[in-house]
């Protein structure tokens, strides 16, 4: 059997088709979900893709969190459904309070697009268990509002509980606190990160294929529990 991974399209989502391709190349079955529906169609995992939902005209992710689909996803995530938020998806997960902290404009105020090295700090989540802890990977980073912030207590908590999943290596590209590129929730089923693993899945179309492991992790995890 094949794991069915839902990809939600919000108005202004940009990397939804890319995320669907990544799921397919990792061996899963992509299932397109529409923000205005509330039905998760029985998927085994969900990806909230990158983009500028609602133009990021308010705060990134601030409007999308009220989508009917997000209510269903919050409930399912609290029940253990693997959820990956990439870039704008990460911002939506923070706005939905599935993940801690918030994202503000990059410290240098420019959009930045580059191949970014990350260190995998936590290889026990639903989306990273096929990596090794401490492994360095390269995936594209591209955002305007990518500076991860949280109060010191929250940051200490994230560190203490091993909930920092990825850290920037070789220079902090946006001013994120403690070089944090991605985090998870206490249960380890919800992961958010700013860089784009769906753009590192095919040789010749991005910096390598490290991104495929994210999707392969979730697919194998859901099959193992099925």
């Amino acid at each position: 059997m094949t794991a069915r991974v839902g990809i939600v399209t919000f108005p202004g989502s940009l990397d939804d088709r890319d995320a669907a391709r990544a799921v397919r190349l990792a061996g899963g079955e992509p299932v397109r979900l529409w923000h205005a529906d509330g039905d998760l169609a029985g998927v085994d995992a969900v990806v909230l893709p990158g983009g500028f939902s609602y133009g990021d005209y308010l705060r990134a992710g601030a409007i999308s969190r009220f989508a009917p689909m997000m209510s269903s996803i919050v409930d399912a995530a609290n029940g253990g459904l693997p959820v990956l938020g990439i870039c704008n998806g990460f911002q939506i997960l923070c706005e939905s309070h599935l993940l801690a902290g918030a994202m503000i404009k990059n410290d240098h105020l420019h959009f930045v697009c580059k191949d970014q090295t990350l260190r995998v700090e936590n290889a026990d989540t639903a989306w990273t268990h096929r990596f090794d802890a401490g492994q360095e990977i390269v995936v594209p980073l591209k955002n305007q509002d990518g500076q991860f912030i949280a109060d010191e207590r929250t940051l200490d908590e994230l560190e203490a509980e091993g909930r920092v999943v990825f850290r920037y290596v070789g220079g902090n590209p946006n001013g994120s606190r403690r070089d944090i590129a991605g985090i998870t929730n206490a249960r380890g089923n919800v992961v958010g990160l700013m860089p784009h693993p769906e753009h590192a899945i095919e040789p010749g179309f991005g910096p390598g294929v490290d991104g495929l492991t994210f999707f392969a992790s979730a697919i194998s995890a859901t099959l193992a529990t099925a």
Partner: peptide, 10 residues
Amino acid sequence: TDQYDRYVQG
């Protein structure tokens, strides 16, 4: 060019 997304659409 680093201010432009060159990866989207894959």
